[in-house]
Amino acid sequence: MAGANSPENRPLSPHLQIWRWHVTMLSSILHRVSGVALYAAAIGFSFWLVVAAWGPGRYAIVSEHLQAWYGQGALYLIVAALAYHLANGVRHLVFDTGAGLQPSDADASAWFAILFAIAAPVGLWLLLNYGA
């Protein structure tokens, strides 16, 4: 079994710390992180629907937390995570067709997804507070 080609001696892919940071790597990590955050958001969303069906008394308690600074902050971050996951998800659907995989294109679309995640919650906040 022992020898240059035994399973134990196969070369390993370099670990995360070895790589130079670049934006496409960040975009991949953020996709997974935002997905996990949206898992938590989906639990909260289901809970919100249950409480809404429960009645106005219970809903008032949840609504109070949602109106508080930490509730608004959480909703803001959920919208940011959703916007990022959406933009990067569309980016991956484009990748699946074989397009946009040149490093310069992939870098540009990764930056677009990150900027969209920053702009979308700000845009929604402006719409809800100053829009129609």
Partner: peptide, 23 residues
């Protein structure tokens, strides 16, 4: 693909309808 339509729809329309925080 379905969520790329459903999620933005919900966020914008629910945001506009529910921003007053009333039950």
């Amino acid at each position: 693909i379905a969520l790329a339509i459903l999620a933005p729809w919900f966020v914008v329309s629910a945001g506009l309808s529910l921003r007053d925080g009333e039950y």
